[in-house]
Write a protein that binds this DNA or RNA. Structure first.
Length: 627
DNA sequence: ATAGGGTTAG
């Protein structure tokens, strides 16, 4: 092993990847292939020039490409001047380097420059320029290159045609991309995949599936694109369905497929499938893939298995900011704010730089635990110490923090002073606080903004109606319902799901369609008797219907999470934790009931809310009733 | 030497 080398009168710092090489006897043009940093290469080159060593274009083009990567094109330019008339190989090397660098526009400049030298672009030239255009979303120059392709007789080159389709679709010129696609005499699987990916990016999942089903041949990537597309569009069930079909066809999921399907499992809380995919991933040798580990952390967190997530996180050889952020957000979601903050300071200690997402997790942790001053400090520190400009999520967290804690006036002023436009989430957080702290005036102010910002979101009207109902202002509650009807807003039906033996069972309120509905209602009846003895009083004010109290109780007892819990208790062995997922916030009455039930049946009940986790155990919940 | 898919918050 050499730590430094001195030869030929030139000091050279060894590049890390070259430390295993023996130092060469003399400084020859070949050396331009053995070193990788512009600094080393420039020194070698300077020496070669000084000793009048003759140089071929090939090593020089290598030198230029590395110089361009810096990008220090000036140096490459000097060599270019010396050469007089460099051939296309030289140009292509430089173009490639620029296209892959942080300043792809250099490639486009070069493309115009090379034509002054009477050099004819070839396939590679076009491909590198097109790559640069794609990076810059520069459709104008892309069209010019396209024109050149026609002139240069490269029009039927499949690679270039695919790049053109990609570029047009990427820049939003979907019609042009489709025209190109139709004009192509031959297409390969990549051509189809490009279109599928771009359609997914535009949110046109149906269009993407249409292409997918028309493909003559599908590769693993085609399947993966489609599966990832469904996850991206919030259709995890379809993603899993497709994944099953892919397995049926005997195709082997790769690392990217695994990431996509794990994200779907995270969305659905499908722990069984998630574990199966985890096992598959390990057997396939994907254990070291950092994307997979990160997604696994998120999957375990969202399936309610915080310990599994933590074990995985602790066992990782390398971690990125995504790993840390996912784990911190996971702890916050599970109400472990203290541990989340400890992890954050560990992260800072080892020199990992937090990003905006990390701070969303941190601020969440603070707001879930009512740590107001801590939250303020982090909010200030994020810009002061880390140069992160708060985005709407961060403002939302802060409003949530103040509102939950009852600092409604401060929350309101905070929104008014925000330097960016507020959104529904921000006012919705204030509205939520108004409900907890029974401030009708402020709630009415919030709803004024919400009916403009997010008029079709039913959740806000429901909260306001609840606030009125809880203060016995029935006419106002009725007015809100009327308002909803007028706006054509319907209450999103609440549903809960529970997975038993790998089968996902879904319940909606008052669900009698389940084959075992009879047994489920009986089970709930038994539980009800027991918790009533423990002091449970039904909280009928959460029922927003104009009916008498007895009827309200009946509605209350058919809430989807109660049905899912009763079913879970029937179908799973004693002591096994029960995991339930709900699409809305867990209802207050169910929350009170679940606490008592966890004690009576001596079971851990984990409920994933639309916001966070509630883990009921021995009569209490990890949210400490602060939610 | 040239083309397409992935994770954290909401």
């Amino acid at each position: 092993m050499i730590s430094s080398a001195y030869f030929g009168g030139v000091h050279l710092l060894p590049h890390p990847t070259n430390t295993h090489l023996r130092p060469p006897r003399s400084l020859t043009p070949d050396l331009l292939h053995s070193f990788n940093t512009p600094f080393e290469l420039k020194q070698v080159h300077a020496h070669l020039v000084k000793t009048n060593t003759s140089l071929s274009t090939l090593p020089l083009s290598r030198l230029c490409s590395v110089c361009a990567l810096t990008p220090s094109f000036a140096y490459a330019q000097r060599i270019l001047d010396r050469l007089g008339k460099p051939d296309i190989t030289f140009w292509n090397s430089c173009l490639k380097a620029f296209a892959e660098s942080d300043s792809p526009s250099g490639a486009i400049l070069l493309f115009y420059q090379l034509r002054q030298f009477d050099v004819f672009p070839d396939t590679f030239t076009c491909s590198f320029v097109l790559k640069a255009c794609a990076q810059l979303s520069d459709i104008l120059n892309g069209r010019i290159v396209h024109g050149y392709m026609e002139k240069l007789g490269l029009r039927s080159n499949l690679f270039l045609q695919n790049m053109i389709v990609h570029l047009y679709a990427l820049c939003g010129a979907l019609d042009d991309a489709l025209l190109m696609f139709e004009k192509m005499l031959q297409r390969d699987v990549v051509t189809w995949n490009i279109l599928i990916n771009q359609l997914v990016k535009r949110g046109d999942i149906e269009g993407a599936f249409d292409f997918f089903s028309r493909m003559p041949v599908r590769s693993v990537r085609s399947w993966t694109s489609m599966i990832a597309g469904y996850v991206h569009c919030g259709k995890p069930k379809e993603a899993i369905h497709l994944f099953m079909k892919m397995e049926e066809e005997g195709l082997k999921p790769n690392e990217v497929t695994v990431v996509a399907i794990l994200a779907a499992c995270a969305d659905l809380g499908a722990l069984d499938l998630g574990r199966r995919v985890h096992d598959y991933s390990n057997r396939s040798g994907f254990r070291k893939n950092i994307h997979i580990s990160n997604t696994l952390i998120d999957m375990y967190v969202k399936c309610g298995c915080l310990e599994d997530a933590r074990k995985l996180f602790d066992g990782m050889e390398e971690r990125t900011i995504v790993s840390w952020s996912a784990m911190i957000a996971g702890l916050a979601m599970h109400g472990q704010a203290g541990e989340a903050l400890r992890l954050f300071s560990n992260m800072i200690q080892i020199g990992m730089k937090p990003n905006d997402v990390t701070f969303v997790g941190i601020l969440h942790a603070c707001s879930h635990m009512g740590m107001i001053d801590m939250g303020r400090e982090f909010f200030a520190s994020m810009t002061k110490d880390y140069g992160i400009i708060p985005n709407i999520e961060h403002y939302g967290c802060m409003v949530d923090l103040f509102s939950r804690a009852g600092l409604l006036q401060e929350a309101y002023e905070f929104i008014m002073k925000m330097p960016i436009k507020s959104n529904g989430v921000v006012w919705g957080a204030l509205l939520g606080g108004c409900r907890v702290h029974k401030n009708i005036e402020m709630a009415e102010e919030a709803i004024r903004h919400l009916s403009e910002l997010d008029p079709l979101n039913d959740g806000y009207y429901v909260v306001l109606s609840n606030i009125y109902a809880e203060s016995q202002r029935w006419e106002d509650a009725a007015k809100v319902r009327k308002l909803m009807r007028e706006h054509g807003v319907k209450k999103t039906p609440g549903w809960s799901s529970i997975s038993v033996d790998g089968v996902l069972h879904e319940f909606v309120a008052g669900d009698e369609s389940h084959p075992q509905a009879e047994e489920i209602f009986q089970m709930w009846g038994k539980l009800l008797q027991k918790i009533k003895l423990k002091g449970y009083v039904p909280k009928t004010s959460v029922v927003l219907l104009e009916i008498d109290e007895n009827e309200k109780e009946k509605f209350l007892y058919r809430h989807s999470e109660k049905l899912a819990l009763a079913f879970g208790l029937m179908k799973t062995p004693s002591r096994m934790p029960i995991r339930i997922l709900k699409n809305l916030r867990v209802c207050e009455d169910c929350h009170a009931a679940f606490k008592l039930i966890s004690e009576i049946v001596d079971r851990e009940i984990v409920v994933r809310d639309r916001n966070r986790f509630h883990c009921f155990k021995n009569g209490s919940c990890t949210c400490r009733d602060y939610w």
